[in-house]
Every structure is written in C-alpha cells, then in structure tokens.
Amino acid sequence: MTFVPAPELARSHGHHVRLEGGFCSSSGCGATTLPYKNICSACGCKMNPHVFEPRGTVLYTTTVVTPPPGFEERTPYVIGLIELEEGGRLLAHIVDSGTEIESGVRVEGVVRRLYDRNDGGPLHYAMAFRVTTRS
C-alpha cells in the first residue's frame, strides 16, 4: 500500500475517525455496514446512515511484526476483530493495552494517528481501540 492520497483521506474521514456506517432500514433484517454503503447486501433494502458508538468487545487479536509500507515505525502493532455493542464488526488497531489481550474483553474507541508520512502530506488518523479500564 502507498500512502492514502488526500482526497481519499477526506472522503473516508467519517468512517476512519467516527465509525460512520449504517443499519438496514428493513425492520426484520438487522444488518449493519461499516464503512457505509447505501444498499443492504443481505436484503436489498436501503441502509440508514448511523454513527456507531465506539464501544465493543474483542473477538480475536494478533500482533503484526511484518508491516506494509508506512507502518514500519508503529510496528509491532495489534490488530483486533471487534464486535461493537450496537452490532456489526470491524478490524481495528488496539493500542495502549499490550499484546496479550483476551477474547471477550471490553474496548473503547480512541482516535490515533496511524502513521506520520514525514513528507508534508496529510496525516492519517483513525479510530483505534483500547481495553476499557472504567467499569
């Protein structure tokens, strides 16, 4: 991967830092989407935009030690598959929580800089998650 170009970064900003996704408008369907798409792939109905609360539980994690270009400085980093409280799943960085993270632990969102490209271009921020300390 090369650095994300500025127009794409602007276009994706809502998804990357606010979890802008959607819920299916059909009452019986319940499907979610993240990032947002306008038509439900489960039933074909319209998806209503929804900003997800950045809270959920960890299903599985792994620690990446062989990064793609741009991610060298933050390596090693933890990637987790997260189930959001409101429904839906996503893959995200897990920060400030070490590498030994048990399945089922609760996490909360925190916006972080993914990398510093060091060339004057736009910085890439994204929603990361950390293990919840408050009860």
Partner: peptide, 26 residues
C-alpha cells in the same frame, strides 16, 4: 518483503482492511 506485503494487501478490502495496515498473515 515490506513492498511485497503492501502489494499483496490489494487482495484485501482496501477501505475496511488494507488502509489500516491489516496484513494477510494478520
């Protein structure tokens, strides 16, 4: 290896995975 890792990530979903540095081994 870093360049090849990055190229192979094009097989993942760019907007949901690749853009966040989620590699194939991950």
């Amino acid at each position: 290896a870093t360049e090849v890792t990055g190229a192979l990530m094009q097989a993942a979903d760019h907007e949901a995975e690749g853009v966040f540095g989620v590699t194939f081994p991950a």
